[in-house]
């Protein structure tokens, strides 16, 4: 016996689209509003910067000049900025569990639905 889906009215269709939309926008903007987004580089400027103390050789100085930066002080922050790659193992484990758990959940639920599909498609002789 093939499954007969109910017919969805206009209101239901609009409602479903809105649900997805709210979810999507939420996923993007919630981390943003909570200020949790993005890894920032932290500059460690050196005092009284010169091109030498910033480790830029003659060719590199020419390149900086061509990019419109002739004053080493202006390049100070760009050159000395570094990421911070220290992380907590707990957070890493949480992430790993979440990724693996997500895929396991999806594949298991999919399989349940898939069996139904196959049964209906190949069940009766065609």
């Amino acid at each position: 016996m093939a499954y007969k889906p109910p017919k969805q009215g206009l209101f239901g269709q609009v409602f479903d689209v809105l649900t997805l939309l709210v979810l999507t926008v939420g996923a993007l903007y919630i981390p943003l509003y909570m200020g949790l987004a993005g890894a920032a580089k932290v500059p460690n400027p050196v005092a009284n910067p010169t091109w030498q103390s910033l480790g830029q050789n003659a060719a590199e100085q020419q390149q900086w000049a061509a990019l419109g930066i002739t004053d080493p002080a202006a390049a100070n922050n760009i050159i000395t900025a570094r990421f911070d790659y220290s992380f907590s193992w707990v957070a890493l484990v949480v992430m790993a569990v979440l990724v693996v758990g997500y895929f396991v959940l999806v594949v298991r639920l999919s399989d349940r639905e898939y069996r139904e599909v196959i049964e209906e498609r190949f069940g009766e002789k065609r």
Binding site: Y85, M95, V99
Partner: peptide, 21 residues
């Protein structure tokens, strides 16, 4: 994860909720 772990978790939550829905 190095630097953008929060986004990764936010996105996974999004996909998990969407899947259940």
């Amino acid at each position: 994860f190095l630097g953008y772990g929060t986004q990764l978790i936010a996105m996974l939550c999004f996909y998990i909720i969407a899947s259940l829905w």
